[in-house]
Design a protein around this nucleic acid. Structure first.
Length: 864
RNA sequence: GCGGAUGUGGCGAAAUUGGUAGACGCACUAGACUUAGGAUCUAGCGGAGCGAUCCAUGGGGGUUCGAGUCCCUCCAUCCGCACCA
C-alpha cells in the first residue's frame, strides 16, 4: 500500500517553486498590496533551532493566504549579518568575519528552504555587503546634514538652518539642540570662519560626535547603548559595564521623542508593546523651579512633577556628578563632600543599580531659598539623584516622595505634611494626592488644581516655567569594533566632515588583527592608510541597529544602485502590513526603526511616517533542559571521581527520608565503585565523602535522555571525562534526570534542530505542529509529544486524494449535502481564524474537517 | 516600588460579542483487525455517584435569568522598567 511520502512531495514542489520563481513579486500590480515581514535573523554559528521559524511560519501562512485572496504580497527574507559573535570568533581564530558570516548564512538558507517558506529570495539583503551598507552610510550622511526644526516639527536640511543663521542669527531658530548651544547674531555668524560655523552646527545635527558619559564595557572593548544593558551588565556575555566619558557619535533620537510617543496611539501593536515604548520614552509633565542659594550667586534649578507640594520641601539634593558641588560646599563640609563624591564616582553602575535600598548622602553646608515662602532649606548631595535626568537637582518633599522620606528619616531631616489626611498615617507618603494644607497660597486646593496654580505663580514671578521631561536619551552610535559599517566621516582637526557621496561605500579595510590597538584605539586603527584626502577617517563603526533600522525599505527595491530605494516603489509598498518578531526588540530595533523611518519621511525620501502598521510578537519557544546530579568533591587529588545520583535518590537525600535499607544498597555499590577508582588512580575517596558532599545539577544533552530517563551508555561516551563515571540508579534500574524549562540555547544542551524534525516528519508536519502548539504570542516549551497527531492528520489528508496504489485521484462525483456542509464550515472557520491570527485553532478546524469526512465515509478523491 | 500579562482535565489547549465548559490533539484504558508496526479502526476518558443528579475554569465576594468571560479583593507564576523627582 502506498504511503504518504513527504520527502518526495516536498522536494518536488520546493524545486518547482525555485525553478519557476513562483514567489517572485513584482513592484506593481492591479491587485491590492500586502507586505508581510519577519524580523530578519542574525546568522549565528549555532544555526536555526525550532524556535526561530515560529514567527516565520505564521507570516508565511498569512502571505500564502493573502496571495490566494488576490493580494500582491511582498514576503522577503534576509540577514542582519554584522555583529559581535562573528567578530569574537575572528579574534580567536584570525579568520575574517566575512568568511564565517557567509558560511552561516549559507546554512541558515538551507535550513529555511527545507521548511518551505514562500520567500522572494531575489530580494534578499545581507547587511554586511558593501552594496547594502553603502546606503546605511548614505542615510547616516543625511542625518548628519539635518537638524530638527521645532517650528515645522520635522527634520530639515542643514542648509535651511545655515540660511537662517546668515540672515537673522540664532534668535528666531527653535531647534532641538544641545543645552550648551551658543546664541549669536547674524553679524557674528557671518564674521566666523568656516570652522567656527561648523562647530556651532554640530549642536544641531541629528548625528554628531560628542564627549559623553557612556556605558563602557571593558570585556567587550566597546561602548553599549542603554538597551544593550540588562541589570547593569552587558546583555551579550553579562560583562560588567562602567560609566566613562568618551568621544562618541550620537543620534539625536530625543528630537523625535514626542512623535514616537504620539504615533503609538495609531499603531496596531499590542498594548504591552506600546506600554514598553511609552515607559522607555518616559514623558513627564511638570515644571522647573529656581531656588536661589543663600549668600551665593548660583541659582539651583530643579525639575518636579509635583510643584503642588512645594511647601513640603525641606531639603534639596544634587547628584554627585553635579558640576557646582565644589562651589556650593562650605569650608567645614569640604572634606566630607569630596570623600562622598569620590566614593560615588567609584561605585560601578551595577552596584548603583542593585543596591537601591541603602541610603547615603552628605550635606554641602549651603542653604537654598524656597521661592514660595523664602524658607531656607539645606542642600545635600546624594547618589539617589541621577545626573542624567532633569537638571540633576531635586527638591525633596519627604512627605510625599518615598525616596525623599527614606532619606529624611535616615538623616533626621524635617518632614512637613502638605496633604490633608496624611497626618493620620505612619508613613505620610502613602497618601500622595488630596486637599492641600500647610501650603500658603495653595491651601484648600486639590492636588491637580494646586499643580496648575503653583506653575502659574512661579511663571508670573519669574522663578519657574512649565516643562516636559523625557527619560529617553540620545542614542550612542559608535562601536569600538571591526565588524560593522564604517562611519563615512573624516576629521579636519576636531571637525567632522562627510566623505563625498560618490566615494560610497567606504569599505571596511583589511586589518591584521581584530583587537583594539596597543594604544587602545578601535580595530580600524590597525588599517594602513585609513584616511580620506589625507585626513584621518573615523575609527569606530556603526552599531547593530543601524542596518536593521531601514532594511524593510531595501526589500522593496533591493538591487537599486542609484538610491536606497526608489520613491515610487516605496510609495507603492508603503508600510509593512504585518511585522512579526519578538518582544525583546521593544526598546531597541523597533524604536530606532521608527526614528529612522520618520526621519526619512520628514526629508521627503519616503512617503509614510510609521514603518510597521501591525506588529505581532510571537512568544519564544523554550527548551526543556535535562539535568544529571553530580557529586562535587573537594580535595587535593588531581583526579576526582565523576559520581552521579539519580533524581529520586537526590530528592530523598534532600528531604532526608532515605530509608536505612536504601542507603545501605547505595553505599554498597558506591563502595565497590570507589574502591576500584581509588586503586586505579591512587586516591582515597570514601563513601562518607559522597553522602555529605554537595550535589549539583549538571545540564545533560537532551538527545541522551528520553522521558527523563538517561541513556547511560550514550551519556558515558558524551564526554571523555564521563567514560568511567559512577552512576547510581533507581531501584528499577533507571537513571532519572531532572528537567526544567529554559531558553533554548547551545550552552544548555537543549536545542532542537528543525532539520531533524523535517527529516523525520516533513516540513508540513513541522509547520502545522508549531502552529498547533498553542497561541502564537505565548511562551511555550518545545516538546515533541503531540507531533504524531499532526502527522496522522496529514497522512489522512493525503489518503483522501490517493488510491491504494499511490496514484493521485480526484473524483467528479457530486458531493453530498453533508460533505458540502463540512467543506464550507471549514473554509469559513479557517478563514476567520487566520484573519485573527489564531493559527492553532485553524489547524484544529482542518483536523475536524478530515475527521468528519472520514465519518461520512466520503469517497476517495472527493473534490467537494 | 511602578507597569503589563497569565492562571481551565494527567498534558498542550478551545470556548471570537455574557448563553450547552473542556472542541481539537497528546497520553491513558478497553476492544477489533493484522502482513506484528513508531500501523489502522471502534469506544471510553474533569471529579463524586449504580443512577437521576451534584460539584468543577487559582481563592473569596459581587452584578446578572445566566459569568471561564464583567466588577471588587486576595494569592501564585512570568515579563518589562527600575532611586526618572
Amino acid at each position: 500500500m502506498a504511503e504518504y511520502n513527504f520527502r518526495n512531495i516536498e522536494k518536488k514542489w520546493q524545486n518547482y517553486w525555485a525553478k519557476n520563481e513562483i514567489y517572485k513579486t513584482e513592484n506593481a500590480s492591479d491587485k491590492p498590496k500586502f507586505y508581510a515581514l519577519d524580523m530578519f535573523p542574525y546568522p549565528s554559528g549555532a544555526g536555526l533551532h525550532v524556535g526561530h521559524p515560529l514567527g516565520y511560519i505564521a507570516s508565511d501562512i498569512v502571505s500564502r493566504y493573502k496571495r490566494l485572496k488576490g493580494f500582491n504580497v511582498l514576503h522577503p527574507m534576509g540577514f542582519d549579518s554584522f555583529g559581535l559573535p562573528a567578530e569574537q570568533y575572528a579574534i580567536q581564530t584570525g579568520q575574517h568575519p566575512a568568511i564565517t558570516t557567509e558560511q552561516n548564512i549559507k546554512r541558515y538558507k538551507e535550513q529555511l528552504k527545507n521548511i518551505g517558506f514562500s520567500y522572494d529570495w531575489s530580494r534578499e539583503v545581507q547587511t554586511h555587503r558593501p552594496d547594502y551598507y553603502r546606503w546605511t552610510q548614505w542615510i547616516f550622511m543625511q542625518l548628519f546634514n539635518s537638524w530638527y526644526n521645532n517650528n515645522s516639527n520635522k527634520a530639515e536640511h542643514i542648509d535651511t538652518l545655515i540660511a537662517e543663521f546668515g540672515s537673522s542669527g540664532s534668535s528666531g531658530v527653535n531647534a532641538v539642540c544641545d543645552d550648551d548651544t551658543p546664541k549669536f547674531t547674524a553679524d557674528q555668524w557671518n564674521s566666523w570662519t568656516e570652522e567656527e560655523q561648523l562647530k556651532v552646527l554640530l549642536h544641531y545635527r541629528l548625528t554628531f560626535p560628542s564627549e559623553a558619559v557612556v556605558n563602557w564595557c571593558p570585556a567587550l572593548g566597546t561602548v553599549l547603548a542603554n538597551d544593550e544593558i540588562k541589570d547593569g551588565v552587558s546583555e551579550r556575555g553579562g560583562h560588567p559595564v562602567e560609566r566613562k566619558k568618551m568621544k562618541q557619535w550620537m543620534m539625536r533620537i530625543t528630537a523625535y521623542a514626542d512623535r514616537l510617543l504620539q504615533n503609538l496611539e495609531h499603531l496596531d501593536w499590542s498594548e504591552p508593546m506600546k506600554d514598553m515604548q511609552t515607559n522607555w520614552i518616559g514623558k513627564s509633565y511638570g515644571c522647573e523651579l529656581q531656588f536661589e542659594v543663600k549668600d551665593h550667586s548660583k541659582v539651583l534649578t530643579a525639575f518636579t512633577t509635583r510643584p503642588d507640594t512645594i511647601y513640603g520641601v525641606t531639603f534639596m539634593v544634587m547628584a554627585p556628578e553635579h558640576e557646582w558641588i565644589s562651589q556650593l560646599t562650605t569650608h567645614d563640609q569640604k572634606m566630607e563632600v569630596e570623600a562622598y563624591v569620590e566614593a560615588a564616582k567609584n561605585r560601578s553602575e551595577r552596584e548603583r543599580q542593585t543596591d537601591v535600598k541603602s541610603v547615603s548622602g552628605v550635606f554641602t553646608g549651603s542653604y537654598a531659598i524656597n521661592p514660595f515662602n523664602n524658607a531656607p532649606i539645606p542642600v545635600w548631595v546624594a547618589d539617589y539623584v541621577l545626573a542624567g535626568y532633569g537638571t540633576g537637582v531635586v527638591m525633596a518633599v519627604p512627605s510625599s516622595d518615598d525616596r525623599d522620606y527614606r532619606f529624611a528619616k535616615y538623616y533626621d531631616l524635617p518632614v512637613t505634611l502638605v496633604v490633608e489626611g496624611s497626618e493620620k498615617l505612619d508613613d505620610p507618603t502613602e497618601l500622595k494626592y488630596g486637599k492641600m494644607f500647610n501650603s500658603g497660597i495653595l491651601n484648600g486646593l486639590n492636588s491637580d488644581e494646586a499643580i496648575q496654580k503653583a506653575i502659574e505663580h512661579a511663571e508670573d514671578n519669574g522663578f519657574g516655567t512649565s516643562k516636559v521631561n523625557f527619560r529617553i536619551r540620545d542614542a550612542v552610535f559608535s562601536r569600538q569594533r571591526y565588524w560593522g559599517e564604517p562611519v563615512p566621516a573624516y576629521f579636519k582637526g576636531d571637525i567632522p566632515h562627510l566623505v563625498d557621496e560618490k566615494d560610497l561605500p567606504v569599505e571596511l579595510p583589511t586589518v591584521d588583527k581584530y583587537q583594539p590597538t596597543a594604544t587602545g584605539e578601535p580595530p580600524l586603527g590597525r588599517a594602513t592608510d585609513w584616511t580620506y584626502n589625507g585626513y584621518p577617517l573615523e575609527l569606530t563603526t556603526m552599531p547593530g541597529w543601524a542596518a536593521s533600522s531601514w532594511y524593510f525599505l531595501r526589500y522593496m527595491d533591493a538591487s537599486n544602485e542609484s538610491a536606497f530605494a526608489d520613491k515610487h516603489i516605496t510609495d507603492y509598498w508603503g508600510q509593512v502590513d504585518l511585522y512579526l518578531g519578538g518582544t525583546e526588540h521593544a526598546t531597541g530595533h523597533l524604536l530606532y526603526s521608527r526614528f529612522w523611518n520618520m526621519f526619512l519621511y520628514d526629508r521627503g525620501l519616503i512617503g509614510h511616517e510609521e514603518p510597521f502598521k501591525k506588529l505581532i510578537n510571537q512568544g519564544m519557544i523554550q527548551g526543556v533542559s535535562s539535568f544529571a546530579y553530580r557529586v562535587v568533591f573537594t580535595g587535593d587529588d588531581k583526579i576526582m571521581p565523576e559520581v552521579f545520583l539519580s533524581k529520586g535518590i537526590v530528592d530523598r537525600i534532600k528531604k532526608s527520608n532515605l530509608t536505612r535499607a536504601e542507603q545501605d544498597i547505595i553505599e554498597n555499590i558506591l563502595e565497590k565503585e570507589l574502591d576500584s577508582f581509588n586503586k586505579k588512580h591512587r586516591t582515597s575517596y570514601s563513601v562518607e565523602n559522597v553522602m555529605e558532599k554537595k550535589i549539583i545539577p549538571m545540564h545533560v544533552d537532551i538527545s541522551k535522555v528520553k522521558n527523563d530517563i538517561l541513556d547511560v551508555g550514550a551519556f558515558k561516551t558524551w564526554r571523555p571525562e564521563l567514560k568511567e563515571a559512577i552512576i547510581i540508579l533507581e531501584a528499577n534500574g533507571n537513571y532519572l534526570c531532572g528537567s526544567e524549562v529554559e531558553k533554548m540555547s547551545k550552552r544548555y544542551f537543549n536545542v532542537v534542530n528543525p532539520d531533524d524534525i523535517v527529516e523525520r516528519y516533513g516540513a508540513d508536519t513541522l509547520r502545522l505542529y508549531e502552529m498547533f502548539l498553542g497561541p502564537l504570542e505565548q511562551f511555550k516549551p518545545w516538546n515533541t509529544n503531540g507531533i504524531d497527531g499532526v502527522f496522522k492528520f496529514l497522512r489522512k489528508v493525503w489518503n483522501l486524494f490517493h488510491k491504494e496504489n499511490g496514484e493521485f485521484y480526484v473524483s467528479d462525483a457530486e458531493p453530498t449535502k453533508e460533505e458540502l456542509k463540512v467543506l464550507h464550515r471549514t473554509i469559513k472557520k479557517a478563514q476567520e481564524d487566520i484573519e485573527r491570527y489564531s493559527f492553532n485553532t485553524s489547524v484544529s478546524e482542518f483536523m475536524i474537517c478530515v475527521n468528519d469526512l472520514t465519518a461520512l465515509k466520503c469517497n476517495k478523491g472527493a473534490i467537494l
